[in-house]
């Protein structure tokens, strides 16, 4: 029986996009539930940052067995950056890695990201979206830094939700 490659691949592709949509919506449904439970006195940003801290720490711990220092710091950094990019790619973003100004710096560029769209759909502010991403990234690095006894930092230089067309984050070794 011949394989209809178009049908099979596009079927999977559509399922992937459906699953990616569910990831975003599930986060925001939980956020809605959390805000309802927390009551009117709580700032949505505080709830979002708390969740972002939990998410980032979980992701960071998940990376520990997969990062290999023995391949050298350059390769280790590329693996770390790739793992961070993959986290967003799985959600539907398009993320590219670029070399930074030194061997201990990598730039991550998000040319597309579904999260601001979800934020809009559920009435979250664009600033909350940026700051929660920042918090996730910081939290990822906390355990990674401790485990490998290094001091890497990440900072946002551009953000789609701020109308800058893309998100750019600089992952670098702090002196």
């Amino acid at each position: 029986m011949p394989v209809d490659a178009e049908k099979e691949i596009t079927g999977l592709w559509r399922d992937l996009h459906g699953a990616q949509d569910e990831i975003g919506r599930t986060y925001y449904r939980w956020r809605k539930a959390a805000l309802e439970l927390a009551g009117p006195g709580v700032e949505p940003l505080e709830v979002g940052l708390k969740a972002a801290g939990v998410i980032g720490a979980e992701i960071g711990r998940g990376l520990l067995p997969r990062l290999n220092w023995l391949k050298g710091e350059d390769a280790w950094l590329r693996s770390l950056a790739g793992a961070i990019a993959a986290q967003w790619t799985r959600h539907g973003a398009v993320v590219k890695l670029q070399k930074g100004a030194s061997a201990t710096e990598v730039l991550l560029e998000w040319t597309r990201c579904p999260w601001p769209t979800f934020a809009k759909e559920y009435g979250a502010s664009m600033e909350e979206d940026v700051r929660c991403c920042d918090r996730i990234l910081e939290a990822i690095l906390e355990d990674v830094n401790l485990f490998f006894n290094v001091h890497y930092r990440i900072e946002t230089t551009k953000a789609i939700p701020r109308g800058q067309g893309c998100c750019v984050r600089r992952l670098y070794k702090a002196e």
């Binding site: 490659a5 596009t10 398009v94």
Partner: peptide
Amino acid sequence: RTYDGYRFPVA
């Protein structure tokens, strides 16, 4: 080619 890099043939 899809925006996220997947490729498939169309007759």
